[in-house]
Design a protein around this nucleic acid. Sequence first.
DNA 1: GCCATTTTTGACCGTTGGTCAAATTTGTTT
DNA 2: AAACAAATTTGACCAACGGTCAAAAATGGC
Lengths: 244, 244
Amino acid sequence: MPVSITTARRAREFAAREELIIREARKFLLERGFQGWNMDDLAHAVEYSKGTLYQHFESKEDLALAVCTGSLQQRADLFERASNFNGGSRERIRAICCACCEFATAHPEYFHADMMLKSASFWDKASSERQEDHRFQAGRCWRTIQQIIIEAQAMGDLPRDRFKPEEATFALVSVTVGSHIMAMEGDMRVMAGITDPLIAVRRNGDLMCDGLGWKPLSFEADYTETDRRIVREVFPGATWLKSA
Amino acid sequence: MPVSITTARRAREFAAREELIIREARKFLLERGFQGWNMDDLAHAVEYSKGTLYQHFESKEDLALAVCTGSLQQRADLFERASNFNGGSRERIRAICCACCEFATAHPEYFHADMMLKSASFWDKASSERQEDHRFQAGRCWRTIQQIIIEAQAMGDLPRDRFKPEEATFALVSVTVGSHIMAMEGDMRVMAGITDPLIAVRRNGDLMCDGLGWKPLSFEADYTETDRRIVREVFPGATWLKSA
DNA sequence: GCCATTTTTGACCGTTGGTCAAATTTGTTT
DNA sequence: AAACAAATTTGACCAACGGTCAAAAATGGC
């Protein structure tokens, strides 16, 4: 069969099926963890044969990476939306912290899976295309924060002489990721006496911003109203903003 | 054979062999990741049969958890040593950050493995005794930081009215863990333009302490000399303190 | 040297990630 | 509509590996 008008339709169907597989695999990964399901189960669930799965993904790890990258893309999307919040630089970075809450709600186990994939034996089994995709989405998250920081420094909300923008970005990324991981850990919540893990995530972001000297400092201002605005304008339907 | 004088010796030999297995498994885990080796390889490496391995560990995951808990115990040991550093509260918390550097040097891949183990399908395959061990060591790390914070608040180095001690502990734990993870990630280092990841780990700890309002603030003091003292008195032979 | 008990062993089993030749479907030509 | 060729799908099959357990070996008391 030579190139024909059906080619485009075929490509569309192929892409749709790939979506379906990823969607179903995400459910499995979430509910049962990487070891808790096998490719035969998944083939049955999506109603295709195992061989067909392997036309899309070169290994189980490759598929898991695709699932993770999908989540990471959503994270980047949330970050970019948050970044467009109409407010001061400190309010915009607060919106990023809210995006982290939104993400943690939708993908509580994301970092567990991500860390697993990045350990040597997993990462190497994924295709280089999907590795590249993952790097790209990680880059989007990074740049969104970096941009806000550069603008904050330009506006004078954030000191310029104490650190380079990359250092501040690195600090914020570290604390947001670390907080997500810690907040989702049952034992940690018990020790920390945390009732609402997502409040703690935003709190940690605040503290780091304070440490960077990002004006106005959190204990000099009240962000309750800002939070309500962020939810209303950027994340309507969010469930993580407790108390009216 | 009734209870005899050989019992104690047997127990000692058993424990020694368990150490050997864990030591060898740690090498494998570090070099090849969880999927990169099998129980037959390991049996060969320790010069015992596979059946003998399963007298010590009820599954491969159980063994991996034992390896991780061993690392975590070392982390707790480092924390406790750091906590005894002879200095002000802020210097002692700096010593904890140095302990994190020491730990990151000795166990660069620790959190990758730890996250993997905590995902459902892995954790459930480990014995409850080893799960308990892991929780215990995590608790030691937590309490060490918590204690310094309580003392800092008592001494007036750290505000009492802005947060509860657990909140501060949670913030510091989050940032140290997050920084370790981020600092060990190749792509992240490239984006952040980080030449020495461990300097960034300490820097992030500093920024969080500043955010908590922990006196004396990092940009009001120079901790270069403190670092040198910490290395000399607590971590002799440390390789992560660059520049004289 | 013999026996009872404990300990060690590795052949064996079931599961599962991954492959590929055969079967099926699709689309074009006559 | 029949025949044909290209593309796609399939699931039986294979090898690798985690885990088991009956048999073998080692131990220690008599």
